[in-house]
Simulated scan of single mutants.
Amino acid sequence: MNPKAGGLPNSLKPEINLEKLQKLVTEVMLPGRFILRPMNATLEILTDTLAWILGSHLIRRHFHLMLSGLVLFGPVLSFWASKYSIFANSNHYLYRKFLRSTWGWTCILTASLVAVISFSACRRFPLCLRHLSRLGVASWLWWGCRRLLTMLEDATGTCYEPVAAPQEAQSSDSAAQALLLLHEDQTKASCLRANMLWRGYEVSQDILILSFCCLLLVEEMSVFGQHLAQEKRLQRSPGAPCRLLFLLCAFLLLIWVLLLLCLLAYFPVWPAHQLGGALGYLGWRGLYQGWYRLNVSWGSPGLPGEGLFNHLS
């Protein structure tokens, strides 16, 4: 042995055995496969069931009627809603994290699902962009509607500052209301920031966007059953990521319906909620039941699934 060499002799040097390494990796991954298989089977059963429900004739034809009935008669639930419930608190986690970013959550998850389904079905980038453009049109419609409603509220409303009533008046008439001092040239946002009172025409933008997002999600998710059928005919698997995206969209739909119920039951405002629901319905009706059914020559992006599964029918 050379005393100048600081390493081990060749007989004592560790050797990497690829067969032993591969066997070790297989033994480590074996328990994970036993865990992932039932989870994957559960995911397939759950997504197949939801795809069948959302793609059924009953849901596709009558979901808007169910939602309209909920918006119209939902305030009746306020007679049984407890003011001590956690949902009666406007600072609840659901309201803070989801209600103010309803369109953002809807757009991100729905766009991801539409992109995956479109590209898996046709492998054509222009057609994928065409289907994604439906969300662009809906975003523009929501932005324009929100700006228009804000301008309408500012033009028709009035800002008031509460003024304490004299003690004599309070003692003589306990039901007398405090005097109000009128403030002109105030917008609704600036008035509320100054802790003053706003009185005027109002449309619930929360109910509007929740109703519109529920209808949009059902429309976009209804073609997932056709996507599963196409993958089965081609003897391919949609894959866990695609199924997981669909499941997240279904969970988001459930959250929006829950928030809609909470707003109607715990914070009833008549007729602002009903007007917001009506505008959300009209937006869906004008797009999915109107413009999207027209030919491409009219600039229509088409209905969900249009041009993706025709060649297999």
Rank of each mutant, 00 (worst) to 15 (best):
P3I: 00
N89F: 13
L129H: 06
P31A: 12
G74Y: 02
T26A: 05
M221I: 03
G136P: 04
R243E: 05
M29I: 11
R147Q: 10
L182H: 12
I117A: 07
R61N: 14
G6W: 02
W198Y: 14
L264G: 14
L192D: 02
R146A: 06
T158A: 15
L215R: 13
L127R: 10
L275P: 04
T156D: 04
S174R: 11
T156Q: 11
L135T: 07
G225L: 12
G7F: 13
S68E: 00
S112Q: 01
V296G: 02
L245R: 09
L275W: 10
Q205D: 10
P268M: 04
W143R: 11
W142F: 14
S313N: 08
G225P: 06
Y93F: 08
F212C: 01
W256M: 09
L208Y: 03
S118M: 05
R96G: 00
P166W: 08
R33T: 12
G277F: 05
A41H: 07
L245F: 02
T150Y: 07
I209K: 04
R199I: 10
T47A: 11
W291R: 03
H64R: 14
E153N: 06
H57K: 13
L210I: 14
L12M: 11
A88E: 10
S120P: 00
R61P: 00
L18T: 03
M29H: 04
L192K: 09
G307A: 07
A88V: 02
L179T: 11
S222Q: 13
A164T: 15
A175W: 09
H227D: 05
P301K: 04
M221W: 01
L180C: 05
I59T: 10
L275Y: 13
L216G: 10
L99G: 01
R233G: 00
W140P: 00
E168A: 14
K232V: 12
L208G: 01
Q235F: 09
I53G: 05
Y281I: 09
K97T: 12
R243N: 03
C191K: 06
N89G: 14
S237I: 03
A229K: 13
S172W: 01
H311D: 03
Y201I: 04
S211W: 08
C213G: 15
W284F: 10
A189K: 06
Y95H: 12
L54A: 01
F119C: 01
R147M: 09
S222M: 11
L30C: 00
S237A: 07
K23M: 08
Y281F: 15
C145V: 14
L50W: 05
L8S: 05
Q167C: 01
K97H: 08
R60Y: 07
L135Y: 07
A250M: 15
C191P: 08
E231G: 05
N2V: 06
G55T: 03
C128N: 06
G277C: 05
Q170C: 02
W291M: 02
P9S: 12
L248I: 12
L259Y: 02
V223Q: 14
L264K: 11
L252V: 08
S101M: 00
F212L: 15
M66I: 15
S11T: 12
C122F: 04
Q226D: 15
W80G: 00
D185L: 08
C262E: 06
S90N: 03
F246D: 05
G277S: 07
L261H: 12
P238A: 07
T156E: 09
P271R: 02
F63Y: 15
H62K: 09
M196F: 13
G55Q: 02
Y84C: 01
A229P: 02
N89M: 04
L8Y: 00
